[in-house]
């Protein structure tokens, strides 16, 4: 099983992810139509990539009044456009901002993992976003947490 691993400290704000996402899905360059968004405010020092985390128990699937969101073989929560009526219920309820509205077509859009090999990950030169096995993710998260803990201890002593 795989998961996104996002490290905002590594995000440079280049937005290659947004550009390639729109290109891959909509065949045009337009970051406003990307499924991944970098919340970015360089004047205040913020770069924060946000994308659907493909929840285990996804609220979007639960709330969709027409059951338009299904789970594919990669675990991606995918919109079936033959059913989706664009009611925005998932957009409003997703706590992570994973579902969005395409400003050109008005359709609801969300990450579909590009069929199992996400393009944003391929284009992220600093590995701020990765698509890794959950065991690897767990290990890395634990390690980062421990390092912070040790750092705090050291500071406390020094």
């Amino acid at each position: 099983m795989k998961t996104f691993l996002i490290d905002p400290d590594k995000c440079t704000g280049c937005r290659d992810c947004e550009m390639v996402c729109s290109l891959y899905h909509e065949k045009v360059l337009n970051p406003a139509r990307s499924r991944i968004t970098v919340i970015r405010d360089p004047l205040n020092g913020i770069e924060l990539p946000a994308v659907c985390m493909q929840c285990e128990d996804p609220v979007c699937v639960l709330v969709c009044p027409v059951n338009a969101i299904y789970v594919d073989e990669n675990g991606a929560k995918v919109i079936d456009y033959s059913k989706c009526m664009g009611c925005r219920t998932c957009v409003i309820t997703c706590p992570l901002g994973g579902a969005l509205i395409d400003p050109v077509t008005g359709k609801t859009i969300k990450c579909d993992l590009c069929g199992g090999d996400p393009m944003c990950v391929k284009f992220c030169s600093t590995h701020a976003i990765e698509w890794v096995d959950v065991s690897v993710a767990n290990q890395r998260i634990k390690r980062a947490t421990l390092e912070r803990y040790l750092e705090a201890l050291r500071k406390g002593k020094g």
Binding site: D9, R15, G45, F123, S125
Partner: peptide, 12 residues
């Protein structure tokens, strides 16, 4: 504190 980049840049 951090590395940043221009838009469309992988070098930062």
């Amino acid at each position: 504190v951090k590395h940043t980049a221009c838009m469309g840049c992988s070098v930062h």
